[in-house]
Amino acid sequence: MSHEQTKQEILAAFQSRHATKAFDPSKKITPADFAFILETARLSPSSFGYEPWNMLVIQNEALREELRAVSWGAQGQLPTASHYVIFLARTGAQMQPDGPHVTHMMDALGLSDEAKQGRTTRYGLFLEEDFKIGNNEKAMEDWSAKQAYIALGNMMSTAAQIGIDSCPIEGFDQEAIEKILVDHDLLDRTVFTVPVMVAFGYRADEPKRAKQRRDLDEIVTFIE
């Protein structure tokens, strides 16, 4: 396949992708295809390489119904999606320079003690001086969520390129969703929060109108 053909296939997938409100419940994503989608999330970039997200894949129908009761934006998706993913983003305490997740990630990177100290110093300056979020728990949670959205976008784009539909979902009562997960021993609120969910499957119907986006020259400014 040529370079131009590859570009056209990618653009065609983006043109076809839409926020699917209801899926065909008789059509299921194969385990191999969903593993492929998950792998693109795993390989996604994150600030400082700290990967401050986890995912829950909710296939249990009874649990989906509990979630549906507090998810006004997922009324059609929760009962019909082939796969339903809840993103978990690390809390501020987890993401402090001496926090347990950051410490774990630096150990996983195999850094020397000197390299760890240099990275810790740079990371601390980033939180305190560059973005000024280090002392704000909500801001730190939101920063973790930003990283999760990178993985979310890659999953949805990947799915579209292999003919699988998706819908990102923020229409839910965050506190209520988190309580349900805590009650099911699926969430430790000191470790994670829930910023976004996403449904995957095969559309039940075609969208009622063509994709509408602003023109490129309205959203991009080149500075020569």
Results as ranks from 00 to 15, higher is better:
1 M>T: 14
4 E>H: 14
6 T>W: 06
7 K>W: 12
7 K>A: 14
8 Q>E: 13
9 E>C: 10
10 I>S: 04
11 L>I: 07
12 A>R: 13
15 Q>N: 12
23 F>P: 00
27 K>N: 14
27 K>H: 06
28 K>Q: 13
35 A>N: 15
38 L>M: 11
44 S>H: 03
48 F>A: 01
48 F>Q: 06
49 G>R: 01
53 W>F: 07
54 N>L: 13
55 M>W: 10
56 L>P: 10
58 I>S: 00
59 Q>A: 11
61 E>L: 12
61 E>A: 09
62 A>M: 10
62 A>L: 07
64 R>L: 04
66 E>W: 10
69 A>D: 05
70 V>S: 07
70 V>Q: 00
71 S>P: 09
71 S>M: 04
74 A>P: 03
75 Q>S: 12
75 Q>G: 10
76 G>D: 01
78 L>P: 03
83 H>E: 13
84 Y>I: 03
85 V>I: 05
85 V>Q: 11
99 G>P: 09
100 P>N: 11
104 H>G: 12
106 M>N: 02
113 D>Y: 02
115 A>F: 13
119 R>K: 15
125 L>Q: 14
126 F>S: 08
132 K>T: 11
136 N>M: 07
136 N>R: 07
141 E>T: 00
152 L>Q: 02
153 G>W: 07
153 G>L: 01
159 A>S: 00
161 Q>G: 12
163 G>C: 01
170 E>N: 05
170 E>T: 14
171 G>V: 09
176 A>L: 00
178 E>W: 00
180 I>R: 11
182 V>R: 01
182 V>W: 07
185 D>G: 10
187 L>R: 06
189 R>E: 14
192 F>D: 03
193 T>G: 03
194 V>S: 07
194 V>I: 08
195 P>Y: 00
197 M>F: 03
199 A>R: 02
202 Y>V: 06
203 R>G: 09
205 D>A: 15
211 K>I: 06
211 K>V: 10
214 R>G: 04
221 T>P: 05
